[in-house]
């Protein structure tokens, strides 16, 4: 279906609203986490990075899953809108995974004493980042839109199937090489006030993801619509 200027404007408006809402929600989460949530006794201030890192990770995983699912739909229905949506989700996912990949080690250093550990979480973070990067790089290297859409869909689907295997491998590695029990990065049961902040973090990250994707998608459709009008 060909995009129209008016149609894409509508999408952009939604995207703007959701993004603004998401950013506002994130500000609230920041204030809540920094000021209104107590410190965790053993881990100190660094534990609060949790409230930023975990929601970002959630959004990155969500973005990735959506790329995979939409890619399947694309190969089935061959609707260019699905490809545009997958591409938007991948770009947004890349952004969230950059946040994951930077806040993760910053959290790890004071808590575990090392910038990086090959545990399930961080390893998956890195793999996800590399998959997103590969997806976006492949797209930029192909100029025919139909071929680009097809190839991206293939990578998206294969990436989605890969993730459980990464989990499995790291899990098996960890059960055979148990790490000495240092400090657990997240308390086994969170006190309600911390849980509340975390849940709000998830909400903010989800709204922000949605806002970013819708806006990005709208902008892409708008650009195509404009180009079509010029021709």
């Amino acid at each position: 279906m060909k995009p129209t200027i008016s149609g894409s404007r509508g999408i952009i408006k939604w995207g703007l609203a959701l993004t603004a809402l998401g950013l506002a929600a994130m500000v609230i989460v920041y204030v809540l986490a920094l000021v209104y949530t107590p410190f965790e006794v053993r881990q100190g201030a660094a534990q609060k990075i949790f409230y930023v890192h975990v929601p970002a990770a959630w959004s990155a995983m969500m973005a990735f899953t959506i790329v995979g699912l939409v890619s399947i739909l694309y190969l089935w229905l061959r609707d260019e809108r699905l490809d545009a949506f997958a591409a938007s989700s991948a770009e947004v996912g890349l952004v969230f995974s950059v946040i994951m990949l930077t806040t993760g080690p910053i959290w790890g250093k004071p808590i575990w004493g090392t910038w990086w550990t090959w545990d399930a979480r961080l390893t998956l973070t890195l793999i996800l980042f590399l998959l997103f990067l590969g997806y976006m790089t492949l797209r930029s290297a192909i100029h025919d839109p139909a071929e680009r859409a097809r190839f991206s869909a293939v990578v998206g689907i294969m990436g989605m199937v890969l993730v459980p295997f990464i989990h499995l491998s790291v899990y098996l590695f960890r059960t055979l090489h148990p790490k000495p029990i240092v400090l657990k990065a997240s308390a086994p049961s969170l006190p309600p006030v911390m849980l509340r902040t975390l849940l709000l973090g998830f909400l903010a990250a989800s709204v922000l993801y949605l806002g970013f994707v819708v806006l990005r998608y709208g902008l892409a459709r708008h650009a195509v619509a404009e180009r079509d009008e010029e021709n």
Partner: peptide, 27 residues
């Protein structure tokens, strides 16, 4: 095999293939 069929049509295929394939080689 699937990825090389795709990357051979891109400009920097020698770079694209490892980039795409590496995560899949991990398990």
């Amino acid at each position: 095999t699937v990825f090389s069929a795709m990357t051979v049509r891109t400009r920097f295929s020698e770079l694209m293939l490892p980039m795409l394939l590496l995560p899949f080689m991990v398990p």
